[in-house]
Structures are given as C-alpha cells and as structure tokens.
Nucleic acid binder design. Structure first.
Lengths: 153, 153
DNA sequence: CAAAATTATATTGTGCACAATTAAAATTAT
DNA sequence: ATAATTTTAATTGTGCACAATATAATTTTG
C-alpha cells in the first residue's frame, strides 16, 4: 500500500467492521421489534437466559459495557418486567440482575431468531464460521491490549 | 450446534463484530483526541480527504449514514472549520460538503494514524488482511440484502 | 402549466456508548 | 476502631445511530 493510500476509506478494516456491525444490527431489528426490545437489550437477555442472575459488574464484563450504558438499559428491561434489579444482601454495593418469569418466556419466542437471521443474511455459512473464529482471535488480542492500558494507569 | 446453544452469546457472530467494532474505536480514541475529532468524524474526514467535495447524500451513501446522523456531525466539523457546508447552485436541495484549508492541513497530522493503530493493536498483520477481505465480502452480501428490502417497499 | 409525486436535507425523539464525576458501601491500613 | 482506599453503581453530559416526520426544491404527470 502506497503512502497515499493509507488514509483511503476502502483500506480501513475498522470501517468494514463498523459498517458490518451496523448492517447486522439492522437485520436483527425487525425480529427484535416483534419482541419489543433493542439489539443491546437482546444481548443482555442472551446473557441472562444463560446465567439467570448476575451482578451488573459481571454483566458488564461479559458485554464490555459499563454502568453508564447498562443502568438505563436495565431499567427499561425492568420496566417491561423482563428482568429484576435488586441489591445484594451480602454486599449492598452490588446490583443483582436476574431474569423474570416473563423474561424466560421470551426465550421461547427468541429461539428461532438465529436461524431467521441466517436466512435473511443469505451469506455463505462457511464464511460466517471462519469470520467468527477470526473475529474472536482479534478480540482476544484487543482485550490483551486494553489490559496493558489498564495496568499503565 | 445443539438447539440449546443457538442463543448462547459465545455463538453469536453479531456480538463478536459488535464488540470488535467498539474495541477498535477505543484504540482510535487517544489518537483522534489529539486531533480533536471523534471516530465518525474521522471517517467523514477520510472521505473528504479523498474526494474534496461531495453532497450529503453521496457522503451518506459511502458511509451508510443518513442525514439524521450526518447533519449534526457535519455542523460540528463546520464549527471546527474543518469543512464547509453550502447549498448547490444548480439544485438548492443538495448540500455540498467540502474540505477546507484547515481540514486539509489535518490530513498531514493524520497520515501516521493507521500505522499507530497497527502498532497499538499488536495483531497479526495476515489476520487483519484476511479479515478485511472477508468482512468486505460479508458487507457486499448484506448490501444486496438491504437492496432487496428497499425494492419490497 | 398546475397538481402530484419525488428527492434532498433537516428536525424530533429514543436509545445506546462512553468519559467523567459522584455517592455509598466495604475493605484495608494505621 | 477510625481514617484512607477501594469497589460498585448511578448520574451527568456529549455524540452518535436511526426511525419517523417535516419542509422545501425539483421533476413528472395529467
């Protein structure tokens, strides 16, 4: 790549990933609309369907989101009665986030979403499998990087 | 993948891409901070460094962003005197967005950013090259998909 | 050519993301 | 035990994203 090309948009991996992320969210939207939730809210539900109860901090560690993002998002999910928010008995600082009965029922409606998404995307499955593996490899490297930054503080 | 696993977070390509996109933006932030712009603003600058003048619509087509996102963003860049916003003579509806002298000067400061990012990410270059190619392949498929949706309206 | 349809941008409203700050509870150190 | 530190969430403020709507200019139709 010549010196003149390094700033061309078409040469930026970051933009491909940024654009793909938004395009994929757009594919989820109509399906999530029928559930009445947004894409980030869906991610929280995925985690809680798997774990039932987690502290806000644990949830944040899994999704790489902080309280500034999660607090209002969780309050909305609580407003829909899909989750519960309550302080821990042992440690009043920690907020326990847990799935409700209604939240668990939604899992049955959501179970078809992944295959619906695949059908709608209309993309080579092998490409998706490869991409998943490579993206996770990238994420691991980036995670290490952010740990280095943390330690420098 | 068993029926029970389809909703696990670790099996969602969408999440890997979503998380990677945010992680990468985080790497850009300190470098862009020294320029005084955000990541989406940087993308606009990349496009304008390449094209000098574009209508808002053309800019939106390139970045997959609409006027709701771009109008306020461009007003901020204009406030920093990095770009100009003016109506076209031939067609008063179209907004011509163009780079200013000051905006062009910023390109010299930005020229090192891509290699700084690479250094900071500390990731296998071959992995990045492969990922770029595959992400673009995915994007093309998703673009076709969204065209289908458009035609259905 | 006037009415209807289309096109381009702006505006409004909602919901993330995230940095920075605040506040309260728990832990550690003196 | 109390003061200092650390930990956990909540709050505040800024800037995207994007759907929905509004507005004004242009083009197409009857």
């Amino acid at each position: 790549m010549t010196n003149n090309d390094v700033l061309k948009l078409e040469n930026q991996l970051c933009f491909s990933i940024y654009a793909a992320s938004r395009a994929i969210t757009k594919i989820y939207r109509p399906f999530l609309d029928t559930l009445g939730i947004t894409y980030p809210q869906y991610l929280v539900m995925l985690v809680l369907w798997e774990h039932n109860t987690l502290s806000l901090k644990e949830l944040g560690n899994i999704l790489y989101l902080d309280s500034g993002t999660l607090t209002p998002l969780l309050k909305r999910l609580e407003g829909m009665q899909l989750i519960k928010r309550e302080r821990s008995r042992e440690d009043e600082r920690v907020l326990c986030v847990s799935i409700t009965e209604k939240g668990l029922e939604m899992k049955q409606q959501a179970i078809r979403i992944p295959e619906c998404i695949l059908d709608t995307m209309n993309v080579d499955i092998p490409l998706l499998v490869t991409l998943k593996k490579e993206m996770d490899e990238l994420l691991i490297s980036l995670k290490k990087e952010s740990q280095v930054e943390q330690e420098e503080k």
